[in-house]
Design a binder for these strands. Structure first.
Length: 447
RNA sequence: GGAGAGAUGGCCGAGUGGUCGAAGGCGCUCCCCUGCUAAGGGAGUAUGGGGCUUAAACUCCAUCGAGGGUUCGAAUCCCUCUCUCUCCGCCA
């Protein structure tokens, strides 16, 4: 028996777009993907697909014959007659089948390579553009504050007493790490607690804790693999390949992998705090100062598993949920609708939240909220059964609610005063048990 | 880390080379019967893909943890891996 066919079928679900849609309307898909700067070789695909079909039909016919005749052999043997002649001719058939199966496997591999390059199709409402300069500002909330003094950046504000210590972090690990002490370590912890409480108490998310190490299937399911292997850390010395999660989206979303959910379970809404690990390969020289871009950072992630017809409503809601964090912290921000050229591989539509950073005098990304529609679900085989018993893929969404390190930066820079003190936003004060971080204070005395 | 036992459908569980996609039970759905309830009778109840179709029907292929091998034929035999359980040791 050969299991190659199953492998192929699994892939056809796992990869990207709906394989049936692709077969039917490759031309219109090519057109849509062009807006994402992806050129696809339609002729190549069509040829492969033709070959695949021919071979599959032939292979199945041969198998059918083999199965039938093998069963007949069994009967003959049970009847006590000789089966030698039948064995010889069946051996030929079996060999022929193996050749076809080999050819089929070759075509399948070529299709693999082709399909793996295809990102999700953008939603029709997504602006067509080359890169981030074509993103649309949806709304701006709050005013960038005007200081009567020259605003410091978070590196300067955190430097007192080694509260934000990059030198020690470099000694411990390397570049792009940070050590936080005293009030800043507490601020980070307070932010995590604040965000989780908000989402679980007011937005209806269930808190979830997941592993920070994920297997290949997870990374594949959420589409970090196979294309973006260099973006995160692989663990060595393991028999099985494992990776540090670049976001808890990976493990949280994969909790529903290989499942047929009951429609009564939907929507599923998870809020997850985790550390995140990114190699930041190819970002040399970018944001080298400060803790804006780190190999290890903290994030509260929001994930929703929903019915297809509700996923765009859910995207609006999820984006709102992330925005509320900024609103409660009274940080000025704006909402960007990403253009086709700037979206992530798995996303059909993405809103970025950008917070105002006085130290840089510009807005910086602090959250990214995406609807991947069934793109991840297909790869994960995450489905649901509706009231009528029909099975369909779920839609998955994810968004940061928020990136904790960057929120900490935003608070330092937006809430600084002329003396270099940092005031704590009202909403956060109960969590900090403090109103102001005073650089003239001895923090060892603080309880 | 050492020793052993396992992995079968929604669940339990039979099945050591051939009509096994898989007995039996439970659960679930529909129907029948019974004055309600309970009990009873009957039928159905996996997933993915291909062919043919407007569609359905039909039919074929694949799937018994994963991958590979032996064979005309594999849930069943061999190899590798993963996971689970029990005992011992160690440990936050």
């Amino acid at each position: 028996m050969c299991v190659r066919q199953q492998k192929w079928e699994m892939r056809s679900q796992k990869f990207m777009l709906d394989i049936k849609l692709l077969r039917q309307s490759i031309d219109s898909i090519a057109l849509q993907l062009k807006s994402r700067n992806v050129a696809i070789d339609v002729a190549h695909f069509t040829a492969l697909e033709e070959e695949r079909k021919t071979l599959q039909v032939k292979m199945q016919a041969l198998r059918e014959e083999r199965n039938k005749r093998s069963k007949a052999v069994g009967k003959t043997k049970a009847g006590g007659d000789s089966i030698e002649a039948a064995k010889t001719s069946l051996k030929q058939l079996s060999d022929e089948l193996k050749v076809i199966e080999g050819q089929f496997a070759t075509v399948e591999e070529a299709l693999d390579v082709f399909l793996a390059q295809l990102p999700n199709l953008p939603h029709e409402s997504v602006p067509i553009g080359k890169n981030e300069s074509d993103n649309q500002i949806i709304r701006t909330v709050g005013e960038p504050c005007q200081f009567s003094f020259i605003a410091k950046d978070h590196v300067a504000l955190g430097a007192h007493h080694g509260w934000m210590d990059f030198e020690t972090a470099t000694k411990l690990s390397g570049s792009r790490y940070v050590v936080l002490r005293g009030p800043l370590a507490r601020l980070q912890r307070a932010l995590i607690q604040f965000m989780l409480d908000l989402h679980t108490r007011e937005h209806g998310y269930q808190e979830i804790y997941v592993p920070y190490i994920a297997n290949v299937e997870c990374l594949f399911g959420t589409a970090q693999l196979p294309k973006f292997q260099e973006d995160f850390f692989a663990l060595h010395g393991n028999a099985t390949q494992q990776y540090l999660i670049p976001t808890s989206e990976v493990t949280v979303t994969n909790t529903v992998r290989d499942q047929i959910l009951d429609c009564a379970q939907l929507p599923i809404k998870y809020a997850c705090y985790s550390s995140c690990f990114r190699s930041e390969a190819g970002t040399y020289g970018k944001d080298m100062q400060g803790m804006l871009r780190q190999h290890q950072f903290e994030k509260v992630e929001l994930v929703q598993i929903v019915r297809p017809e509700t996923s765009y409503q859910a995207l609006q809601a999820l984006t709102q949920h992330a925005e509320v964090v900024l609103q409660r912290l009274e940080l000025p921000y704006r909402v960007m609708l990403l253009s086709t050229g700037d979206m992530g591989f798995a996303a059909a539509k993405t809103y970025d939240l950008e917070v105002w950073l006085p130290g840089q005098e510009r807005y910086r990304e602090i959250s990214s909220c995406s609807n991947t529609e069934a793109f991840q679900a297909r790869r994960m085989k995450a489905r649901f059964r509706d009231e009528a018993g029909h099975i369909d893929y779920v839609h998955t969404l994810n968004g940061s609610g928020l990136a904790v390190g960057r929120t900490l930066i935003a608070i330092l820079e937006n809430y600084q005063d002329e003396r270099g003190r940092v005031h704590i936003p009202k909403a956060l004060q109960p969590y900090m048990n403090l109103e102001v971080i005073d650089c003239e204070e001895n923090w060892y005395a603080h309880r």
